[in-house]
């Protein structure tokens, strides 16, 4: 049995797209572990999900334009533009108290989705590409996607190493951080921009609807295991790695789509962890 599974695993490595998926999964778990920790402790889950959904509008626009123009636009570029604009937009609106934060998020969320749905419906043969965007498709991962993700991972690691204490202060007590001389608005927007870029770069891996699960579930479990943010990041990375690799392998064994399988595998562990914690009191 175990030998069969191991054999299956090595067999899986023979497919180039699975190799790419596994490399992507490894890099993605670092992003999920570190960025997800901030998403959970700074309580920006809803904002992050809003950004993810809003990026759908940009993807739809890119598909639409690519179909009707003579050149094609990478959907990731459309997603990046929409994600960044909505991240900065939501961040500034709540900071400057122009609009209630949750209202701003809800509206930007659905406007992005509506635009996306409209553009996709105006583009022939949209259904499959729309599904890929929403739920991810590891067959679509290219080498350039991996390089982009690698740059993101390096950027995140360097930024968190240098600004660890500033990010901790901004997450814990934004007002005091500001008084102490930290540019809190800049750091908050920086955090949202990292979240936005992470969502975009992982779009082909898990899709925009499922991505928030992997930003929250590992970090949420990890935050119950330690009170030190650096350790939470480490545990969260390990958990993400288990979720991603376990989910990928299960999807191969069962011939299920990878995005939903990864999410459900992680969700199962999360539910068990939460229930056990609840029963134990």
């Amino acid at each position: 049995m175990i030998v069969d599974i191991l054999y299956g695993f090595f067999e899986l490595l023979e497919y180039p797209f699975y190799r790419r998926a596994i490399i992507t999964g490894f890099l993605a778990s670092i992003v999920f572990g570190i960025v997800g920790t901030y998403v959970v402790i700074k309580r920006i889950v809803f904002i992050s999900d809003g950004i993810a959904h809003a990026s759908f509008g940009g993807i739809g626009l890119a598909f639409f334009l690519s179909h009707y123009l003579i050149f094609s636009i990478d959907p990731l570029i459309g997603a990046a533009v929409f994600a960044l604009v909505s991240a900065v937009g939501i961040g500034l609106m709540s900071k400057k108290k122009i609009q209630r934060e949750d209202t701003a998020i809800g509206i930007i969320w659905v406007l992005g989705m509506a635009l996306g749905a409209l553009f996709f419906s105006l583009t022939p043969g949209y259904l499959t590409s729309m599904e890929n965007v929403l739920f991810g498709n590891i067959y679509m991962i290219s080498d350039s996607d991996i390089y982009m993700l690698l740059f993101l991972v390096i950027g995140v690691l360097v930024a968190v190493f240098i600004f660890y204490h500033e990010l901790q202060a901004v997450s814990f007590d934004e007002e005091f951080a500001e008084v102490a001389g930290v540019k809190t608005t800049a750091f908050y927007l920086f955090l949202l921009v990292i979240v936005a870029l992470s969502i975009v770069f992982l779009l082909r891996f898990v899709g925009i609807i499922l991505v928030i699960a992997l930003f929250t579930m590992p970090a949420s479990i990890a935050s119950g295991l330690s009170h030190d943010i650096r350790k939470i990041m480490l545990y969260s990375w390990i958990l993400s790695l288990i979720f991603v690799m376990g989910g990928l392998f299960l999807s191969y064994l069962l011939d299920f789509p990878s995005g939903p399988t990864i999410t459900l595998f992680g969700g199962l562990i999360f539910v068990i962890y939460t229930l056990v914690g609840w029963v134990r009191g």
Binding site: I41, Q168, A169, F172, A177, A180
Partner: peptide, 17 residues
């Protein structure tokens, strides 16, 4: 629920520098 110990809260007074 925020994960931070007393020592790191106090050091935050120096974060601006």
């Amino acid at each position: 629920d925020f994960p931070i110990n007393v020592w790191n809260v106090v050091l935050m007074g120096r974060v601006g520098s």
